[in-house]
């Protein structure tokens, strides 16, 4: 299949139930649901700006189970940026990111030029917390990637996460900000807060 150079592909990885889909759907549609439907593979598209023109941001939400190693490899080799999600309520889920990180290194080689964000989700569940944010930070430092804690439920740091990730891309200038007509759900749903965009 020919490369679609105009697309910027972000792939979200992490163990089952850490909230990958919740983060993605909160970002794309501005919604949140309590019920859990395991994901197989979904991809959402949004128009963003890239080097002063528009391009498509493709966010691929992957499965948390290890059923499809071939699909995982394919997603990595096609991805431009990665979000590695764990839940702050499960140390195990942070551990489970290691093989994925290693596989990204193996397939992509030079990881330092690739935007990777380590994300501790469910930051709202303070009573069940198993992983301190300092642990996450330490891991991010080790992996030479960025770090953030989020809550898809409370809509905390979700948009910031994606914007930060795009800011890490140094090979081109990508930004969520466009004065486009598209992403109407996004416009309708998103309450912009804090964080400004570069440009």
């Amino acid at each position: 299949m020919p490369e679609q150079s105009n697309d910027y592909r972000v792939v979200v990885f992490g163990a089952g139930g850490v909230g990958k889909s919740s983060l993605v759907l909160r970002f794309v549609k501005g919604t949140f649901r309590e019920s859990y439907i395991p994901t197989i593979e979904d991809t959402y598209r949004q128009v963003i700006s890239c080097d002063k023109s528009i391009c498509t941001l493709q966010i691929t939400d992957t499965t948390g189970s290890h059923q499809f190693p071939a699909m995982q490899r394919l997603s990595i080799s096609k991805g431009h940026a990665f979000i590695l999600v764990y839940s702050v309520t499960s140390r195990q889920s942070l551990e489970e990111l290691k093989p994925i990180y290693e596989q990204i290194c193996q397939i992509k080689g030079d990881v330092e030029s690739i935007p990777i964000m380590l994300v501790g989700n469910k930051s709202d569940e303070s009573q069940n917390r198993e992983v301190d944010s300092s642990d996450g930070e330490a891991m991010a430092k080790k992996w030479k990637c960025a770090f953030m804690e989020t809550s898809a439920k409370m809509n905390h740091n979700v948009k910031e996460l994606f914007q930060e990730l795009l800011n890490l891309e140094k090979r081109r200038t990508v930004s969520l900000q466009i004065d486009g007509k598209k992403s109407k759900q996004q416009k309708r749903k998103e309450k912009l807060k804090g964080k400004c965009v570069v440009m």
Binding site: T39, I40, D42, T43, K182
Partner: peptide
């Protein structure tokens, strides 16, 4: 319509 997709079981 925008070529986003979901995989359903």
């Amino acid at each position: 319509p925008d070529h986003s997709y979901v995989t359903i079981r």
